[in-house]
Simulated scan of single mutants.
Amino acid sequence: MNIPDHIQNLISKYEQGLLSATEKKELDNWYHSFDDQQTVVSDVPQGSEDELAERMAVRLQESLAADEERLEPTGVPARKWRTPAAAALIFILLSGVIYYFIQLDNTAAQQPLVLSAPVPAGDVAPGGNKAILTLDDGSVIVLDSAHNGILGEQGDVDVKKLDNGLIAYQNQDGNIPAAEEKIFYNTISTPRGGEYQVTLSDGTKVWLNAASSIRFPTAFRGADRQVQITGEVYFEVAHNETQPFKVTAGKSAIEVLGTHFNVNAYDDEVQVRTSLLEGSVKIAVIDQPDQQQMKILKPGQQARMTRSGRISVVNNIDTEEIMAWKNGLFVFKSTDLRSIMRQIARWYDIDIEYKDNVGMQFTGQITRNNNVSKVLEMLELTEEVKFRVAGKKVIVAR
């Protein structure tokens, strides 16, 4: 039996406090689907968590046997990776599973039992659910520490923090804002080491990766719905044929009616990449009225725009790799090390220093829920590269 990707994602979301009641029930049902009654946490006497961990590790090892959970450099035989990578993945998953189910079943305990160890000295914890909301008047709300409920009012729109930690913009009393009313603009930004999700007033769902931002009106009025982004953002746009949804990212102007797509527009990447999962999007260059560079994407295509404004289209993209960040994973498929380290730097809020020229590529995956040392250890198994963590800096050498 393989552990489904969405179950791994649920475990990651639980540790970040993002699970809804429905998702918690699904995770609970999955756990209790193990027919080995010895794995049920409520049957384990107090103080025998180590025995539970050992039994769960055996079960997870069996489940992972058929999986491709390994991390290997392109061209290096897989046999060097299989055992260490599988063991690391079991440890990653196990820490989340044990934490969740012991906390779930020991409801009588005054303090929840957390088996995950504190971050050791010389290591760096992973990122989490962190963001800052800047209101139209310039006031700032730290979302990860804000209370649930209404955070503020922007005209006739309530800004709410929901019980699952997400942010939603809701029209008061369900009224449609009048076109002549003042438009309020808000910005949600994530730091390095942060991610966040927001539902806009039209129902569009937005996920922000680390070091990203979105500026948007609290209510969409007029002929279209316009937002501006930086960094990496995934959209599930609410369909509205009469009001196209437009995204500005660098020089890219993206227009949709209702669709799912990801935009990677980090300043330290050489291209703005727009990847379409479903629906249709139109890509154009800002301030080029002749539209000579305009492209229309189909699902499974990616538009790549250079800083000078040239657009190319790539077919048959790997959506698993592109959407890995949203699913709580690092997924590398013949990915060069410098690109990998840029992702690591954003998620762990660290700086990278290169002592040697490194040009190797890697293929594999690992959860983003680890301390940085675990990710680096996976890469070091190639024996092609070495890392040293010095405070908030990672030094890379051959």
Rank of each mutant, 00 (worst) to 15 (best):
Asp318Glu: 13
Ser312Ile: 15
Val331Ser: 10
Glu255Ala: 11
Val331Thr: 15
Leu277Tyr: 10
Gln293Leu: 08
Ile283Glu: 01
Val331Cys: 05
Leu276His: 00
Ser252Leu: 13
Tyr234Glu: 09
Ser275His: 05
Thr306Asp: 10
Met323Arg: 07
Glu241Tyr: 09
Thr248Ser: 14
Gln292Val: 10
Glu321Tyr: 05
Phe330Glu: 14
Gln293Lys: 14
Gly258Ala: 03
Asp268Ala: 12
Val247Met: 04
Glu278Trp: 09
Leu276Gln: 00
Val263Lys: 01
Glu320Met: 03
Arg307Asn: 12
Val233Gln: 03
Asn327Met: 00
Glu232Asn: 12
Gly309Cys: 02
Phe330Val: 12
Lys326Val: 08
Pro289Gln: 15
Lys298Trp: 09
Leu329Gly: 01
Phe332Asn: 04
Thr259Ala: 04
Gln293His: 11
Ser308Phe: 10
Phe245Leu: 04
Met294Lys: 15
Lys295Asn: 03
Glu321Ser: 10
Asn262Tyr: 01
Ala253Gly: 05
Gly250Ser: 06
Val285Thr: 06
Gly309Lys: 12
Val247Gly: 04
Gln301Gly: 03
Leu329His: 05
Lys251Tyr: 06
Val233Asn: 13
Ser308Thr: 15
Asp268Lys: 02
Thr319Val: 06
Thr248Ala: 15
Asp267Lys: 14
Glu278His: 09
Pro289Val: 08
Thr248Tyr: 06
Val272Cys: 03
Ser312Asn: 13
Ile254Ala: 01
Ile283Ala: 01
Gln301Arg: 04
Pro299Gly: 06
His239Arg: 14
Asp290Ala: 08
Asp268Phe: 13
Glu236Thr: 15
Met323Ile: 04
Ile283Phe: 09
Leu297Pro: 13
Asp267Ser: 15
Glu232Ile: 07
Phe235Arg: 02
Ala253Phe: 10
Ser275Ala: 08
Gln243Met: 12
Thr230Trp: 07
Met294Val: 13
Ala324Glu: 11
Leu277Glu: 07
Arg273Glu: 12
Val281Tyr: 07
Thr259Ile: 07
Leu329Val: 10
Trp325Phe: 13
His239Cys: 00
Asp268Trp: 02
Asp268Asn: 11
Tyr234Asp: 03
Lys326Gly: 01
Glu241Asp: 15
Gly300Phe: 02
Val270Phe: 04
Met323Asn: 15
Lys246Gly: 05
Asp268His: 00
Leu277Ser: 11
Thr230Phe: 12
Pro299Arg: 14
Gln293Gly: 09
Glu321Pro: 01
Ala324Thr: 04
Val247Pro: 01
Leu277Cys: 08
Glu321Leu: 09
Lys295Asp: 00
Asn315Tyr: 12
Gln293Pro: 01
Leu297Val: 01
Glu236Ser: 13
Thr242Leu: 08
Thr242Phe: 07
Glu269Leu: 07
Phe332Arg: 02
Ala265Tyr: 06
Val247Ala: 07
Glu232His: 02
Phe235Lys: 00
Gln302Leu: 06
Gly309Pro: 03
Ile317Lys: 03
Lys246Met: 08
Met305Ile: 07
Ile283Asp: 01
Thr306Val: 08
Leu257Ala: 03
Gly258Lys: 11
Glu321His: 10
Ala324Ile: 07
Gln302Val: 14
Ala265Gly: 13
Lys295Arg: 15
Ser252Arg: 11
Asp267Gln: 13
Gln301Lys: 08
Asn316Ile: 06
His260Val: 02
Phe261Arg: 02
Ile283Met: 13
Ser275Val: 00
Ser312Arg: 15
Leu257Tyr: 10
Val233Cys: 01
Asp267Val: 09
Gly250Ala: 10
Leu329Ile: 05
Val331Tyr: 07
